[in-house]
């Protein structure tokens, strides 16, 4: 398969740091608990629905927003950008909250605002709503980041003309642990869209 597509930008979020193309954009001390909220303000996201999202959606949304702001992608253009994401813990962080609300039969008040986030693909919906992306959405769960599955799936969307660009990556939240790595696959960019390149970028998460 001919590979002409490139990676034009990428974003990492881990340990209270957000980086764009390998450079830290925003960080707070590791012990601070309101990192996502502070990042929202510092990065001028300006989207009040952000505060209704669960942590997983907030994390994916922030990382996507960093890339889209950098790429000048706005809702006016309604671009055909497919979203292909995955993680290990699915929506377990919020699943546990919903389970807590029904565990005690004498205080049984399941919340619809919590329940709706007990699906990992909701984060794709949140990004799609903000950026008016009427495009392909797929959410995968793996034990760990599987480069070949992400690479080949993105390639197939390109070959079948299903998308002009593809936002791919890994967004995981599990209790106190979290990490996000998103990269944008486009016709133009400085980095090759290859498995090796994706691996190299993914691994930067651990040195952030």
């Amino acid at each position: 398969m001919e590979n002409q597509f490139k990676i034009s930008s990428y974003c990492h979020v881990k340990q209270n740091k957000i980086s764009l193309n390998g450079k830290v954009l925003f960080s707070v001390k590791p012990e601070e608990s309101t990192f996502l909220k502070q990042a929202y303000k510092a990065l001028n996201v300006n989207y009040s629905k952000f505060f209704k999202m669960d942590k997983l959606s907030q994390l994916a949304f922030l990382a996507a927003d960093v890339l889209f702001q950098y790429e000048n992608i706005s809702e006016e253009n309604q671009e055909n950008i497919a979203l292909v994401m995955g993680n290990k813990a699915s929506s377990l962080d919020t699943d546990r909250k919903h389970q807590d609300s029904i565990q005690d039969k004498t205080s049984y008040y399941p919340s619809p605002a919590v329940f709706v986030y007990t699906l990992p693909n909701i984060m794709l919906g949140e990004i799609s709503i903000k950026y008016k992306l009427y495009s392909e959405n797929s959410f995968f769960v793996f034990e760990n980041f599987k480069t070949n599955y992400f690479y080949n799936y993105a390639q197939s969307l390109i070959v079948d003309n299903k998308a002009d660009k593809i936002l791919c990556g890994w967004v995981n939240v599990d209790d106190e642990d979290y990490e996000a790595f998103l990269y944008l696959v486009t016709p133009n960019g400085d980095l090759q869209h290859t498995e090796q390149q994706i691996n190299t970028l993914y691994n930067e998460l651990w040195t952030l």
Binding site: L119, N121, I122, F140, V141, Y149, Y153, S156
Partner: peptide, 23 residues
Amino acid sequence: IVLSNACVSGVLAVAVAKRYIKS
């Protein structure tokens, strides 16, 4: 490969399988 895409998961699996075969 686990696919978890809400209520479209079952039929999306057909599409995803086809795409992995085509690629």
